[in-house]
Each structure stands twice: as C-alpha cells, then as structure tokens.
Computed example of a mutant assay.
Amino acid sequence: MVSPVLMNVVLAIVGTAVVWKGSGLLESASEQLSAYYGLPAAVQGAIVVAIGSSFPELSSAVISTWLHGDFGLGVAAIVGSATFNLLVIPALSGILADGVEADRTVVYKEAQFYMVAVSVLVITFALAVIYNPVSLDGPASIGGEMTRSLAMIPLCFYGVYIFTQYHDTMDHEAETPPEDINPIRQWAYLAVSLVLIAVAVEMLVLSALGFRDMTGVPSFIWGLTIVAAGTSLPDTLVSVRAAKNDEGVTSLANVLGSNVFDLLVAVPAGIIVAGTAVINFSVAIPMMGFLTVATVVVFAMLRTELHLSARESYILLGLYGLFVTWLVLETLDVTHFVPGA
C-alpha cells in the first residue's frame, strides 16, 4: 500500500512536470500568435505571454476555492507565486544573462501599475472585512467574506490595464507576420496546453491539501511553497529565455504583467466561480506586506539606470531567502507575525 507521504510527493512531482510540459507548449503558441498579430514587445510580454503563463495561478485559485472550498490556499499560492516571480525570476535572468535591460515603459507603466494592483487587492480585502465581517477561530484572527460584487473591483482595474495596453498597440508599427504561422493550429495548441496545466494544478492542490492534513501545518504555507513554486515554472521559463536572448523588456514585462493578472484576475476568479469566499485578513495582509516591500525594492533597482545588474540580482535572491526563512520560522512558531495562521 502506498504511503500518504509518497503519494503527496508523487502528486507534487508529476504535477510540476505536467505544468512544465504544458507551459512549453503554451509559450510556443503564445509567441507564434504574438508574431502573427504583430504585437509590440511590451504588450507581448505583459498581456499575451503573461496571461498564458499565469494560467496555473488562475487554475489554483479557481480549483482551491470552487472544488476544495479553501480560498486561503488559492490566495497563498498566488501571493507566493507573485513573490517568486518578482524576486527569483528577474534575479535568475540577471545572473544568467549578466544583467537585464529595462526601458521607461517597463519602469513607469508596468512596474507602477503593478504597485497599483497590490494596493487594489489589499483595499478589496479590507472592504470585505469592514462590510462583511466573519468570525474565525482564534482571538487574533480577522476575517471577511468576499462576494462577487467585491471581486469586480480588481477585475475592473484589470480592464483599465488592458485599455492602456490597447493604446500601445495602436501606436505600434507591426512587422509583416511570418507566412509559415498557422493561427488556427496555434490556438488549438494553446487550448491543449491550458487543459494540461489545469490538470497539473489540481495535482499540486491535492498534494498541498494532503501535506496539510498529514502535518497540521496550515494550507497557506503549502500554497506559498508547493503550489506557488509549481505554478511559477511557466513565468520562469519564459522570462529567463527572453533575457538570455537579450529581450530584457519582454522578460521583465512578462513578470510584472503576470503578477498584475494574478492579483487582479486570478484571485477574484475563484470568488466569481464559487459565489463567495472567506478571507483571513490576519494571514493575507502580512504576506501582502512582504510583497509590497519586495515590489518597492525591485522598482528602485529597475529605476537606477534602467538596468538590473548581476549584483542586484543576488540581492533579490537574498531577499527571497529571507521570505522562505520567515515562512519556516512561522511554521515552527518561532515568530508570530501571522497570528491568524
């Protein structure tokens, strides 16, 4: 008889492998479609590739909330993935490509709109606590019920983001698309890749829930680690490869665009599907607070000379190491910055 530990480990490994395979197919189809429709580099990275590579995070939010009734796991997976995307992916890109070049579009539009996205989600959670308070276990826990009407707030802001990207495409002079691209075939490949990723994410979620039941460690910790790491693979592959090809703008735009999509679309998507979900404000806000600090650090580094150096990349890796260390200390009850856990 297979032990529960082995089963959960196998689910995590197989799920990650299928995400890897599906993401490779997704990346190829996204690039082909972007070339066919003549999209500018910033829009290609921030919209087409970012939405495609963020589908695992979207799936984790919907599956966790709708199928398993654990909205906190989905939010943790997205916040963990956003932190990984923001710190590790640019760091790996900067180290492997010996620095990543940015431009004013990435710094003044993508990075700043991402800061807005973080603020919008925090405000939405706060509104849930203020207008729909919920009693949770534990004297320090503060909860609120997220409704479909509240979920529309971040979705509307993502509409603004799409609107700004649309105007960039209007000013862009597209090159002649390659003649050997079959758009129907590429859309079919894209659809297949999304199905593969959805199945893989269900494996990752089941693995996280299994480890929660076995160890008693809150599901948000497993969401921040197992699910977040597995779902961040597509963004890692896309951004690192773009950086090594001297496409720094596409690399950074994909990271920031993916995180904007995760926060403004993936999180509310689970609520839209399920109808309502309870958010543990005491758990969510410390995590969002760290994400805010990481965002400010990355923005400051990109703003200096519009370049992320290899030295700055190692600093970002160190900051992510502090994040993981903090999670371990919280799990061991050494620190108590997350009282609602």
Rank of each mutant, 00 (worst) to 15 (best):
Gly72Phe: 02
Met170Cys: 03
Leu150Ala: 01
Leu73Pro: 15
Ala117Tyr: 05
Ala91Asp: 03
Ala77Val: 06
Tyr158Val: 09
Ile153Thr: 03
Leu155Asp: 05
Thr169Ile: 01
Asp171Val: 13
Ser141Cys: 03
Gly138Glu: 05
Pro133Leu: 12
Val107Thr: 05
Leu92Met: 02
Val75Trp: 07
Phe163Gln: 07
Met115Phe: 11
Ser119Phe: 15
Pro133Trp: 01
Pro178Lys: 08
Phe71Pro: 00
Ala140Arg: 12
Val134Asp: 12
Thr147Ile: 06
Lys109Pro: 00
Tyr161Glu: 09
Leu127Tyr: 04
Leu150Phe: 12
Val134Leu: 04
Thr147Pro: 15
Val118Pro: 10
Ser135Gly: 04
Ser81His: 13
Met170Asn: 05
Tyr131Glu: 15
His172Thr: 11
Leu150Met: 02
Pro90His: 00
Pro90Ser: 00
Ala77Phe: 08
Val160Cys: 10
Gly94Ser: 01
Tyr166Ile: 07
Met152Ser: 08
Ser119Leu: 12
Glu173Lys: 14
Gly138Cys: 10
Ile162Tyr: 02
Val88Ala: 02
Gln112Arg: 13
Leu150Ser: 03
Phe157His: 04
Gly94Glu: 00
Asp103Arg: 03
Asn85Glu: 08
Pro154Gln: 03
Ala111Cys: 05
Thr164Ala: 03
Pro177Glu: 13
Tyr161Phe: 10
Ile130Leu: 15
Ile89Val: 12
Ser149Trp: 14
Leu87Gln: 01
Met170Leu: 12
Gly72Ile: 07
Ala140Pro: 05
Leu155Cys: 07
Met115Gly: 06
Gly144Lys: 08
Ala151His: 13
Val100Lys: 01
Ala126Met: 10
Ile95Met: 07
Leu73Met: 11
Gly143Arg: 01
Ile162Phe: 09
Gly72Val: 05
Val79Cys: 11
Ile78Leu: 15
Cys156Glu: 06
Val160Ile: 11
Asp168Ser: 12
Pro154Asn: 04
Tyr114Phe: 13
Val134Lys: 07
Gln112Tyr: 11
Thr164His: 05
Asp70Leu: 05
Ile142His: 08
Ala151Tyr: 13
Ser81Leu: 09
Val106Gln: 10
Gln165Ala: 13
Gly72Glu: 14
Gly94Leu: 00
Glu110Leu: 09
Val122His: 05
Ala128Pro: 08
Val160Glu: 14
Ala91Ser: 06
Ala174Gln: 09
Tyr131His: 11
